[in-house]
């Protein structure tokens, strides 16, 4: 489970370098997100553009990441159609701000792709 981040003045972009966020990696994902959200800017964009598959455990880990980053805004970017479908079916698309891409999130303010 490889995640890295890049900071601009007021945004931290965390990129997930995995094609799956599933039951096998959910706990690791959540722990790494906790570490990466501990410091840095208060606005965090989670770039999921390399993730082609997410299951309910992975979804739960993304939700947990938002909750544990209390006080910070966690936004999502670059959801593949399959990943977006899971967010829509569970209505989690209404909980997160979802951007078309990390670039759109950084450049275009708060355009919500859903």
């Amino acid at each position: 489970m490889q995640l890295d981040y890049h900071d601009t003045a007021n945004v931290r972009t965390i990129t997930v370098h995995e094609d799956r966020v599933d039951a096998a990696v959910a706990i690791t994902f959540k722990d790494k997100m906790r570490d990466l959200c501990e410091d840095g800017p208060d606005r965090v964009i989670l770039d999921l553009s390399q993730v082609m598959f997410i299951d309910s455990s992975g979804l739960g880990a993304v939700v947990a990441s938002m909750k544990q980053a209390s006080g910070k805004a966690l936004e999502l970017a670059g959801l593949s159609p399959t990943v977006l479908k899971v967010f829509r079916l569970t209505r989690m698309d209404s909980v997160f701000v979802i951007h078309e891409s990390a670039a759109a999130a950084l450049g275009g303010g708060l355009a919500n792709a859903s």
Partner: peptide, 24 residues
Amino acid sequence: PLDLDTCAEQDLPEGGFGWFLIRE
């Protein structure tokens, strides 16, 4: 599914979606 009317951020469920998805 998620009950949007009663859910504050800290109360959001982190699990329990599996059977909803399967049934859906």
